[in-house]
Design a protein around this nucleic acid. Sequence first.
DNA 1: CTGATAAACACTTCATACAAGAACAACCTT
DNA 2: AAGGTTGTTCTTGTATGAAGTGTTTATCAG
Lengths: 226, 226
Amino acid sequence: MKRSNAQRLRDALEDDIINGRRAPGERLDADALCHEFGVSRTPVREAVQQLVASGLVTVSPKKGTFVARVGIDELIEMFEVMAELEGMCGRLAARRIDQAELESLRQAHERCEVAARAGDSDDYYYENEAFHDCIYLASHNGFLAGEARQLKQRLKPYRRLQLQVRQRLMSSLEEHRDIVAAIESGDAAGAEQALREHVLIQGERFSDFVSSVRRFGLGREAMDGG
Amino acid sequence: MKRSNAQRLRDALEDDIINGRRAPGERLDADALCHEFGVSRTPVREAVQQLVASGLVTVSPKKGTFVARVGIDELIEMFEVMAELEGMCGRLAARRIDQAELESLRQAHERCEVAARAGDSDDYYYENEAFHDCIYLASHNGFLAGEARQLKQRLKPYRRLQLQVRQRLMSSLEEHRDIVAAIESGDAAGAEQALREHVLIQGERFSDFVSSVRRFGLGREAMDGG
DNA sequence: CTGATAAACACTTCATACAAGAACAACCTT
DNA sequence: AAGGTTGTTCTTGTATGAAGTGTTTATCAG
């Protein structure tokens, strides 16, 4: 299948935003993008609209389009919902997971452990994604899995900020152990609880990080990205 | 603020789809829409893309665009998620609702009761929306409220099918009573449970309805809308 | 120096024209 | 008659230009 220019442009911009190459608050100049990608305004406009729909960019009418800068309180709200969705995935997975999926989950967990022991936080982040994806899949609810992935994507630019904390990496791994154990034993309530808190802690850590950054007056540089 | 043609078109189509004037599976001919609304292809295309993003229509490449026909299993999945979101709203509302919001909730419940006693299912449906909206608001999580509303919209064309069941109307009202009671007393777990089941029952009823329809061989007319 | 008004500018929206690709159908060949 | 091939048509994707609207800025008057 050949992808349209608009699609490629959308994916490229999305990737840029999610991986922090375009910081929240940064301007997206339509003409510049036209020139940069060698296309006309139409596909650029289309791509931007799709990004608006997914919440990654915002347009201020007659002012221009910018990478979305979500407020700290909205961010906390989003973490709250993310925790619920992950918890739900865990609850369903504990009841519905089959043998093959359980094996995939165990392997994903092992790869997380390897990455954690190596202290490679980038690698851990990647394997962590795979681990959670296993749980999404095991929930046997494709719609739920899609919503969870989408929301996680949207939070990604902000979760990156707290990646480097080494302590968090090891405790995250321990939480994974509990999660796997709960799912293995079919403990739906336990899996839900463990996953919910696993995510909520990220939200709290993030909140701590932001408030500490604010205290030191670095808010503009760290949050506004310019 | 003057709304653009694309916006008006999008709203009109959305309303048509949600309220069943355009049935799932029905074709959306771009040229016909151009003529119908007296605009060119550009805003039509834009509106259609937005509807695709929100899941209300699908495009089969080189075949045309159609009102989304979601499969029965995906529908059940969506009800499952809807139940979780509603439950979460209830849990948060039980903890966070303030006096004014509680008063609004009580009033909304009373209006539901009036509509139910009158046996006016259309009116009840409308008041029911308002009732649930009160709970969304009281969750004090704007993001969650937005997601819940969006998903509910998407399910609306299918929930309409089971509106006429009179028995359901009265039992729905009773469930509302339990929900209000739980939120009033700050019983987070109770409110969550009550709301979750309140929605899940709709999903089950819907599932029953579909399977009975299928049994009588009316599947194509009822589901495909043509 | 401050406020208002007007003009320039930037962004958006829309229309029209064009190109390309896929599906379907008809026709030709075997 | 059957299967492949070719051509037509429908649909999507893209470019470009023009018009309309809000914002901002600069200038002038008080």
